[in-house]
Amino acid sequence: MTAVANEGTFLLTDRQCASILDWAAAQPHNGLVLRAFLASVALAALQPKEALKLRARDVEFDDQGHGALLIPSQGRESRAEEADGAATVRRVPVGKGLAAILKEEIARRDLGPDDLVFVLDDGRPLTAPVYRDVWRQARAAVLEAHEADSPLGSTVSALRDARIAAWLRNGDQTAAHIVTVAECAGMSASRLAERFAHCLRKPTPAEIPWHLLEEDSDLSESASEPTGAAPRL
């Protein structure tokens, strides 16, 4: 079953995402790099254009098998900061699965710190036209006929949407949790809440702190009451 994200957009299931990665890995040409690229979108919620720019120096690994990706921020504020000589970078945690895939890809090609991570077998950098063509093939191979005829997974970014939705659903959905997810995804919390409203659990009446709201209301009312006639000058 697919879940509607907003009008005309649907979310891939975990099974469908995994099947697409497996399909990519099985391709005789560029299979491993395609799997690594798609995994970075599917498991770290990178924008495809961010993944294309990823260099070996941007990937960190720890002793426990996890890691992190260092992604330059894309927003208007970051561009202003870059003009001042202080570029901003967001740090995206990486689980063991993606860490292993990226570590294997970096070792397989013996990449240096400045080398792009996602390079085709013939040495050319992976580009948007190439991965879009592969995505069309993977989608047709993995999805059922009625799913392929729907908007489900129409672009590679569907992998990113599925990961963001999973992050939201699998947390406590407090304000701090939503902000953390937004930071990892490289978007504002307000935009995240608007775009993925269907993933956010609505609080029950019992969970809403009505007494605190009432106290705040009482305070506001008392502050607005006149304290007496103004003295004559």
Rank of each mutant, 00 (worst) to 15 (best):
A56D: 02
T174H: 05
D110L: 08
A166I: 00
A158H: 01
P203R: 04
S40W: 06
L12I: 06
L143R: 09
V130S: 09
S19R: 04
S220N: 04
L116T: 00
S217R: 13
A175N: 07
C17W: 01
H146D: 12
E207F: 00
L11N: 01
S222Y: 14
A18F: 03
D122I: 09
R57Q: 12
N30E: 01
E105R: 15
G67I: 03
D63N: 14
L168A: 05
L111M: 12
V179H: 11
L152S: 06
G67A: 05
V156F: 04
S40A: 15
R139Y: 01
I208Y: 05
G112A: 07
A25S: 09
A158E: 01
G153W: 03
G95N: 07
V134E: 05
L192G: 06
A83H: 09
D172Y: 14
T227S: 13
V179M: 08
E194G: 14
S19W: 00
G112I: 00
E60R: 15
K53M: 09
I106H: 11
D122S: 10
L212N: 10
R76P: 00
P226R: 15
W167D: 07
A229C: 13
Q74P: 01
Q16M: 03
A128I: 12
Q74C: 06
A45V: 02
A141P: 03
E194K: 13
E82R: 15
F10M: 15
A140F: 11
L213P: 05
I208R: 02
A107L: 08
R15E: 06
T9E: 14
L32F: 04
W135K: 04
S78P: 00
R163Q: 12
R163V: 04
